[in-house]
Amino acid sequence: MLVLGGIATLVAGGLFYCASSQQRLLPAPLSALLGVGGGTGLITIAVIYLSQIMSPATTSFMIVLLLMIVCCLLPVLASFLKLRNGRR
């Protein structure tokens, strides 16, 4: 359950990033329904999974922490990959 909740949170963060107009991974941003709606659904699934094995406070902290990590590292990784491929 811990791994499934963590993966759902990481994928949700990726969907939130790809729905942004400033994202650099995809040629065009994802639609708001797919990006934000899918991310919200995955966060809900993560809360359900993680609440079965952790307290609500720990669950909230873990989800927020993983989302912050994804939101900080994904833009840097995307820029690095574009620079490495010769595109700016």
Score class of each variant (00 low, 15 high):
residue 52 Q to A: 15
residue 52 Q to P: 15
residue 5 G to R: 01
residue 72 C to S: 08
residue 82 K to T: 04
residue 65 L to D: 01
residue 83 L to N: 10
residue 49 Y to C: 13
residue 17 Y to S: 10
residue 79 S to P: 10
residue 6 G to A: 07
residue 73 L to Q: 03
residue 54 M to R: 13
residue 76 V to S: 10
residue 70 V to I: 13
residue 36 V to M: 12
residue 77 L to C: 14
residue 13 G to H: 03
residue 3 V to R: 07
residue 10 L to N: 00
residue 56 P to C: 04
residue 18 C to H: 12
residue 3 V to Y: 14
residue 71 C to F: 12
residue 3 V to T: 12
residue 80 F to L: 04
residue 20 S to H: 02
residue 74 L to T: 02
residue 58 T to I: 07
residue 40 T to S: 11
residue 81 L to S: 04
residue 46 A to H: 01
residue 28 A to V: 00
residue 3 V to P: 08
residue 31 S to A: 07
residue 64 V to H: 07
residue 6 G to V: 08
residue 28 A to P: 00
residue 13 G to K: 03
residue 62 M to H: 06
residue 11 V to M: 14
residue 56 P to R: 03
residue 37 G to D: 00
residue 69 I to R: 01
residue 59 T to I: 15
residue 7 I to V: 13
residue 85 N to I: 00
residue 79 S to W: 12
residue 80 F to S: 09
residue 82 K to S: 02
residue 35 G to R: 02
residue 69 I to Y: 05
residue 56 P to Q: 05
residue 60 S to L: 06
residue 65 L to Y: 03
residue 19 A to L: 06
residue 40 T to M: 11
residue 47 V to H: 11
residue 49 Y to D: 05
residue 37 G to S: 06
residue 16 F to K: 01
residue 87 R to M: 09
residue 16 F to H: 08
residue 82 K to Y: 02
residue 85 N to L: 03
residue 74 L to S: 04
residue 80 F to T: 03
residue 23 Q to I: 00
residue 32 A to M: 00
residue 2 L to V: 12
residue 65 L to R: 01
residue 75 P to I: 15
residue 61 F to W: 06
residue 86 G to E: 12
residue 33 L to M: 00
residue 63 I to V: 05
residue 58 T to C: 11
residue 67 L to V: 01
residue 36 V to L: 15
residue 68 M to H: 05
residue 8 A to C: 11
residue 80 F to N: 05
residue 80 F to C: 07
residue 86 G to P: 13
